[in-house]
Design a protein around this nucleic acid. Structure first.
Length: 426
RNA sequence: GGUGGAAUAGCGAAGUGGCCAAACGCGAUUGACUGUAAAUCAAUUGGUCUCCGACCUUCGGUGGUUCGAAUCCACCUUCCACCA
């Protein structure tokens, strides 16, 4: 069995844990069961969820039993950690729908079918919902003092924020999460909870509660919160969150998100998010230092991630789409691949009749496609050599005829390096 | 309430009767270079056209003076400063 703690250490995935020495001994003694919770706030996971998910996978590969806990109950309350405002409550239907959607995604990362140590998915609503409020106060609330609860950073920061405050509902969140840990220890012999550092407070409530109620030791282990080198939150782009669901974030954009990683972030991301070996990553790091322009590390990261999440075929399509959208030739492109491109850029209709006869002036089409605000501007861009038709630089005298249509209906227009538009003849 | 001053393009800021579609700076766009980065250099930056030229619409708003107004006059609007 691999030494999972050493593995986490070198991947910079270890931030803190309760009683590390004792945990190391326990891990060395044999497989244990561990869990990590996810709040079903949306019907898809996003890249920010990947760190704990991959950590669970690493534990599974090391022979341990991973449990994914979907926060059917806690998700209805809202975790105050890292949130400056009170959350909106979700309806039970929403939560159930989200959990069902997330289940499918989890199967890509964790093995739920292996005979040895299959992963399992539990929903804390199953054991939380039946408990009455009075029972909860007596069985859980009695063991935790408000003094310790108020001392948690997540709570204190919200209490200092006079304008918004914190509701009793969110204040109670940590008790629910603590109760989960206790419950999982009792029913599934779960001995370790992992999460990002912002979960530290919630996790220690669980270890404390379990010790007091069952008289046994359980551990908590947290990973560093994934941030970009500039300190901003990971997993967001100008266009929004990067989701794992192909409907929400296309494989192409998913791939591009990782290709665009900063040099200063990419090695860290490779360590945390991929299963590449230490040697492979070191090689990529050397390559990055020697030849930053080649962006080998970024591309390796993007390849790994896209393959893992969307599969090899989606990766191939994303690569081809990238090639086209960064000026590559359209030779040999199939309609299927081109359709991927169409999905990525603004698409507008064009009356087919306009191309008949002498054809249409390219400047008109540039305006119609929304790439220039006026015909005068379109002409200037053409004069500057900044307009491309089907990825070939266009002369400003050029007339566009039906012969230029790709697959009989598309025109791919580009202004400059990256502004694309597709016109669909109708 | 009083007295001065200001309002110009995406932003900042020149321009005080014709040579003004309006200097300059920033920003933005395009090109070269590059790594889908940064920096640098160049071009463009109200609109239309038959585009080396012409026309149209713009300098807070409305009217006026003039052959001609961003520029002068009147009124209005908004903002700033100082004084109460």
């Amino acid at each position: 069995m691999t030494d999972i703690l050493a593995e986490l250490d070198w991947r910079d995935l270890y931030a803190d844990s309760t009683d590390r020495d004792a945990l190391a001994q326990r891990l060395a003694a044999g497989p244990l069961t561990l869990y990590c919770g996810f709040d079903p706030t949306a019907d898809s996971l996003h890249v920010g969820n990947l760190v704990p998910l991959f950590a669970l996978r690493r534990f599974q590969l090391a022979g341990h039993h991973p449990i994914v806990l979907a926060g059917g109950a806690t998700g209805m309350v809202g975790d105050p950690s890292g949130k400056s405002d009170e959350r909106n409550l979700q309806t039970p239907d929403q939560v159930a729908h989200n959990i069902a959607a997330i289940r499918g995604q989890l199967q890509k990362f964790l093995d739920f079918t292996t005979a040895q140590n299959p992963a399992c998915l539990v929903n804390n609503a199953d054991w939380t919902a039946p408990v009455s409020f009075l029972e909860f106060l007596r069985d859980v609330g009695k063991h935790i003092t408000v003094n310790t609860m108020v001392a948690k950073d997540s709570v204190r920061s919200r209490m200092e924020e006079r304008s918004s405050g914190i509701s009793f509902t969110e204040f109670s969140y940590m008790l629910l999460q603590g109760h989960d840990f206790y419950h999982l220890r009792k029913t599934l012999k779960c001995e370790l909870q992992v999460g990002a550092t912002d979960q530290w407070g919630n996790i220690t409530v669980g270890t404390e509660l379990t010790r007091k109620k069952l008289g046994v030791t359980v551990w908590g282990l947290v990973f560093p919160l994934l941030t970009k080198s500039d300190g901003s939150k990971y997993g967001k782009t100008a266009a929004g969150t990067v989701w794992l669901d192909a409907q929400r974030t296309s494989p192409y954009r998913f791939y591009q998100f990782f290709v665009n990683s900063d040099d200063s972030d990419v090695i860290k991301l490779l360590k945390i998010l991929t299963f590449l070996s230490r040697d492979e990553i070191t090689a990529l790091e050397t390559g990055l230092a020697a030849q930053p322009g080649a962006r080998g590390a970024q591309k390796a990261l993007a390849r790994e991630m896209t393959t893992l999440v969307h599969g090899p075929e989606a990766l191939a399509a994303a690569l081809k789409a990238s090639e086209i959208l960064f000026g590559g030739s359209l030779d040999g492109v199939t309609e299927e691949i081109f359709n991927d491109v169409v999905g990525e850029v603004p698409t507008l209709d064009l009356e087919r009749a306009k191309l008949d006869g002498a054809g249409s002036a390219i400047a008109d089409l540039v305006v119609q496609a929304g790439l220039a605000p006026s015909k005068g501007q379109a002409r200037k861009d053409l004069d500057a050599g900044g307009i491309y038709l089907n990825n070939v630089r266009a002369e400003h005298t050029r007339a566009v005829t039906p012969a230029d249509l790709l697959f009989g209906k598309y025109l791919l227009l580009r202004k400059g390096k990256r502004s694309y538009a597709v016109l669909v003849a109708r």
